[in-house]
């Protein structure tokens, strides 16, 4: 059973890393969060109820790892580092990269709560119900927080023309 849990967690790593990257753009910090979360999850594997969503459980552990351990190490003004933000650029052209960097920068300027809800719903694509469970808040709170977060993000982006990727 624990072998299969490890296996399933391994399969979630790309998503966990992506969520962590929406919290902090430092790749190393983001990976630290994920590593701590994986260690915690394995240490408390008995707390996971088989049959429930492993992804929601893991996202919750990542969120808590970020809040407890890593966030304090990261100074807010260091959240966005353009050189590093450009690193995971693949084969796409300059316009898409520019847009990506604008979005990453805008994300870094959001409040923590807003960044998390955007990271779960827009970046990962979790349904509202699961996102509310990860954040341990009621659905109504989730919905209004998400609406405000989107508004804030849109505002931060609105001084730049939208560009299609």
């Amino acid at each position: 059973m624990s072998v299969s849990l490890e296996h399933d967690i391994a399969a979630l790593l790309p998503r966990l890393r992506r969520f962590a990257r929406s919290l902090t753009f430092h790749r190393e910090d983001a990976d630290d969060v994920v590593q701590i979360a994986v260690e915690r999850a394995l240490a408390r594997s008995e707390q996971w109820e088989a049959g429930t969503r492993l992804d929601s459980w893991m996202f919750r552990i990542v969120k808590n790892a970020w809040i407890d351990e890593v966030r304090s190490r990261v100074r807010r003004d260091q959240l966005f580092v353009p050189e590093e933000a450009g690193e995971h650029v693949g084969d796409d052209h300059a316009g898409a990269q520019q847009q990506r960097m604008a979005i990453e920068k805008a994300m870094s300027l959001l409040s923590e709560d807003h960044r998390m809800v955007i990271g779960l719903v827009l970046v990962d694509g979790l349904p509202y119900k699961e996102a509310a469970e990860v954040l341990e808040i009621p659905m109504g709170t989730l919905t209004s927080r998400l609406a405000r977060a989107r508004e804030a993000l849109q505002e931060l982006l609105s001084d730049r023309p939208r560009k299609k990727g």
Binding site: L13, P14, R21, D31, V38, V89, G165
Partner: peptide, 19 residues
């Protein structure tokens, strides 16, 4: 927003993260 972060999925996962 989705597109801005989707590239992370294609990055190799650092070995230190593997359970």
């Amino acid at each position: 927003v989705f597109a801005a972060f989707s590239g992370v999925l294609d990055e190799p996962v650092p070995p230190r993260l593997q359970p």
